[in-house]
Design a protein around this nucleic acid. Structure first.
Lengths: 195, 195, 195, 195
DNA sequence: TGTTAAGCGAGACGGTACGTCGGGTCTTCTC
DNA sequence: GAGAAGACCCGACGTACCGTCTCGCTTAACA
C-alpha cells in the first residue's frame, strides 16, 4: 500500500527545499519576478543551482510554489445570501492577489504559464481550483435557496470574477478599490439570479 | 505651437518604421512574445538595432504598436438594448484578443507593462481607451432609456468585461467559448440594470 | 614484513577494481582523455563514484593504472651492439606509446602529472622506470664492450629517446615513421660512442 | 592590392585585444594553465566573455597567442661548427621553454592541441616552425662544410631535440640541467656527422 | 552469535566553469 | 544626423563535472 518509492541514494535535504522557497519568495518582492534569477535564488539560499533544477523545471514552477502555497484553508462563506457569499469569497480573492508577493508575481507568472502549453493547462487547476471549489458550494446553496438556476455556468462566473480582480489589482491599479468585492458581487449576483 | 522639431540632418526613413513593425508582428506569432528579441526583429527588418531603439524605448512599446494599431474604427453599437449593445461590444473585444498576434502577445505584454511603473499607467489608456469610449456612449444611451442609473461605475464594468475576456482567452483556454460575449453581456447587463 | 592492515569491515570487491579499470581503458579510447570523467567511468563500470575515489586520488592516477599496467616483461635486448640494443629498446617504446589507449592518453596524462607537484615527481619513476632499467643493462654491456664511456649520462639519453618518441607520436604525427627507432638508435649510439 | 576587408561596423578595440592577452599571460603563471578560465581572463581584462570568444575559438588558441608571441627574432647561430651551432640553438630552445609562462603552459597546452585534430596539425607549424627554419640553415652550412650528409632528416632531428628539451624541462625536472644544451648538441652532432 | 566497521550503489549536495544569448550602448563608415 | 553593421560590457541561461556527503544495505572479522 506504500506509494513511496524505494528511495535509493541520498535523500533530498528538506532544509534546502525550504531555503530555496524562502529565498525565492523574498527575492520576488525585493526585485520583482522578471529580475529574479535562478542563480540569485540559489546564492541567497546557499544552495547550488542544480539543487533547484533537480526539484523544479524552471522559474515559473518554483515561484508558483514559493508564492502560492499558503494552504488555502479559508472556510467557505455562508452568509445566507448569494451576494453576501460572493462578497466574502471575492474579498478573499482580493486579499490573496493583493499580498505583496502575489502582486509582484502574478502578471509575469501568468504570462510564463500562458506561454508554455504544458503549464497553461495548469492555470485553471493550480490557480483557480480552491476558489472554484468554494464557488461550487456557494452555488449549490444558492440553488437550494432558489436564487439561481441549477445550470449556472460556474467556469464563466469564475473567469469573470478572477479576471476582474486580476485586472483591477495586477494590471491596472496599485491599490484596489475597497468596494471592489462588494460591488462586483452585487452586480454578478444580481446578474445571475433567476428573477 | 508647431511641435515638429527643426529636423536637421537626414530624416528618418519611414520604410524602416513599417519594416520593423511588420517584422515584430511576424516574429511574435512565430516564436511568441518572450522569444522575440530586438536583435531578431532588427535582423528580419534589415535594420540596425539602434534604429529600433531610436524610435521605441524597448520591446513592450514596440510590440504594442506592432500588434495593437488596428485603427479601431468599429462603430459604436446601437441595438436598442443595453444587453444587445454589450454583446456587440464584447464580441469586438473577443475578436480583438483572439487575433493570432494579440493572443500570442497579450499575457507577456501586459506583464511587462505591469512590471514598469511608467508603463503600468498606460495600460488603461492604451489598451482600454477605445473600449471605454464606446462603453461610455452605450451607457449614456442606456441611461437615457432608463435601463441603468446615471452613476453606474464605468471603470469597474470595463475591468470586469476586459478581465473576463482576457482571462478566458489569454490565460485559460485556447478557443473562446462562442457564447462568451452573449452570456457575459446578459449577466452584466442584468446585474447593473435598475430593476 | 607484511604491510597489510588489520582489514576490519567488509573487504574491497576485487571485481569492482577490474570493472573500473576496464571501463576507464575503454572510455579513454572512445572519447579521449579529457572527455573521460570519473562519473562516466563509474556509470560504465556499474559502480558508485566513491568506490573509485576510495581507491584512486583522481583521474590521472586511475587512467595511468588503467592504461600502463601492461606488466612490462619484455626481455632486455642483447644483440651484441649498442645500436642494435637501442633499436630494439626504442621499438618497444614506440609500440608502447603507439598503442591506442596510450596514444589517446599520453599528452593529457603527462600534462596532469606535470601540473601537480606530487605527481610530477612520479613521471620519471612511473613512466620511465622500466625503460631506464633496461637501458642501464644495455649500457653496462656497451661499457664492457668498450663502446661507450662508463660515465655516460643515462638520464639524459633516456630523456632524449623518450622525448623524441613522445613528440613524434603523441604530439606531432598520427603514424610514427617506421624507421624512427632505427634512425634514432643509430644517431644516439654513434653520438655517445667513445670513438 | 588591399587585403583588408571593407570593415563594416564598429572595429574591434585593439586595447581589448592586448588587455586579454596580458590577462591570460598573467593568470597562466599565477594559477597554471588548467585553472585559467576564460571567465577569469575576461574579468581581469575588464572585458566581456563574448569579446574573447569573438577573437579566439577557445582557451588553447588564446593562451598560445598570449605566451608564444615573443617575436622570435633571434639570429641563426654561426659558430663555425655544427656542434657549436646546435648548442646555441638548443640553448635558445631551453630558454624559451624555461620561461615562467611557457613552463606553466606547455604540457597542458600541447595536450589540448594534441587532443583536437585541427589544432594537432598546427603543433609543428606553430610551435616548431621558427626552430626548424634556423635548423635548416645550420644544416646547410654543415653540409657545405662537409660535416653532415645532405639528406640528413631535419624533422627527425628536430623532434629529437625539441622532445628532449620538452621532456627534460616541462615534464621531468623543475630546473634544467645547465649542461643540457651542450651535452645534447654534442651527442646529436656527433651522431649525425659523416665520420 | 551478535556487534561493529568498512565497502558498496545511488544519488543529493555546494561549487565552478562552460559556451551562448539578449539587453542596451557605442563607434565606425556610408548616405 | 540617420542608418546598417557589428563590437562592447554585462549578466543570465541550463548543463556538466568536481569531490564530498549521506542514505540503506551487504559482507566480513572480531568479541
Amino acid at each position: 500500500m506504500s506509494s513511496s518509492p524505494p528511495s535509493r541514494g541520498r535523500p533530498r535535504n528538506p532544509r534546502s527545499h525550504s531555503a530555496i522557497v524562502g529565498a525565492a519568495a523574498e527575492l520576488v518582492v525585493e526585485v520583482g519576478y522578471a529580475a529574479t534569477s535562478i542563480g540569485a535564488v540559489a546564492a541567497r539560499a546557499g544552495v547550488g543551482k542544480d539543487t533547484i533544477y533537480r526539484r523544479w523545471p524552471g522559474k515559473p514552477e518554483l515561484v508558483f510554489e514559493a508564492v502560492f502555497t499558503t494552504t488555502d484553508n479559508a472556510p467557505t462563506p455562508d452568509t445566507g445570501t448569494l451576494a453576501g457569499d460572493l462578497t466574502v469569497l471575492l474579498q478573499g480573492l482580493v486579499d490573496e492577489f493583493h499580498a505583496p508577493a502575489a502582486a509582484a508575481v502574478l502578471p509575469g507568472l501568468l504570462a510564463d504559464f500562458a506561454a508554455d502549453p504544458v503549464l497553461k493547462a495548469r492555470i485553471r487547476s493550480d490557480f483557480l481550483a480552491p476558489s472554484k471549489e468554494r464557488l461550487l458550494i456557494v452555488f449549490e446553496r444558492a440553488v437550494a435557496r432558489g436564487e439561481i438556476a441549477a445550470e449556472t455556468p460556474v467556469d464563466l462566473v469564475l473567469d469573470t470574477l478572477a479576471g476582474a480582480v486580476f485586472f483591477h489589482i495586477g494590471l491596472v491599479g496599485e491599490h484596489p478599490d475597497p468596494q471592489l468585492a462588494a460591488l462586483l458581487a452585487a452586480v454578478v449576483a444580481k446578474g445571475i439570479e433567476v428573477r
